[in-house]
Amino acid sequence: MQIRGFWNHRCAIARKTAATTEPFAVRFLLIGIAMVFIGLFLLAPLAAVLVQAFGDGVGVYWRSLRDSDTLAAIRLTLLTAAIAVPLNLVFGIAASWAIAKFEFLGKSLLITLIDLPFAVSPVISGMIYVLLFGLHGYLGPWLSAHNIEIIFAVPGIVLATVFVTFPFVARELIPLMQAQGTEEEEAALSLGAGGWQTFLRVTLPNIKWGVLYGVILCNARAMGEFGAVSVISGHIRGLTNTMPLHVEILYNEYNFVGAFAVASLLTVVALITLVLKSFAEWKFKQELRVS
């Protein structure tokens, strides 16, 4: 009797765990498949960039980064991001405030429109500005008569970047603010706080991790955008070349070390992005857990 009891007990445990998970062999196989896939498609490209960049030694790497055209590309990329990200931050906060805190006609259409850049090919995103401001575009003749340069110049690059990256902050904040509701704002108002006070003291602190998250992703895309900027920049070395475009030029000139050196900088930005993003997610989850 004792043995049977023991056996029954073992069976019960086995059955209970089998109810919500797979046998060890299956688990092992699935983890293996997933890891090989990740290794092949994510880790290998990441490693390749660094290996290629330092392929001819650290000295060559530094020399190719100190090239004046490279430095100009870095400056332009930073400038573009410095303009596009704050603009889209303001847009994201305004859009999510209107969408998450109010009920109005055409709200779901507006949400769909905000997602538009994700559906449009980057190439087309750049092209629409060429059609508008280019020499043969609608406003082209007027612009050239007044000596205003947009296409093949910095304003066009900024415009295309703003277009490609405007959904990022809004998309993070809309669901977050919807989930938080309006009770805390109502409480603040009932206690005598004004509109801006309510926003700055109650709403903003509640969404800060979401804002950080959106800004990080927005910045990564702004610094890394290739297709849209490529169409609009004209690839003028030292003037309208962003870092990704500079990578292309160096690569096409068979200056592989140079190309990968610049690429390695962008890769570091990407890795920092991932770290910050994980940090924001972790902070946010922590706050969710305690509340």
Binding site: I38, L43, P45, V49, G224, V247
Partner: peptide, 26 residues
């Protein structure tokens, strides 16, 4: 596991041009 989880978003963060030349090299 957590490292892999964080790495999943690499294609969002890595500029496509970088991915292009890197994959070509591999």
């Amino acid at each position: 596991r957590r490292l892999v989880d964080a790495l999943i978003d690499l294609p969002f963060a890595l500029p496509t041009a970088v991915a292009g030349i890197s994959l070509t090299a591999i």
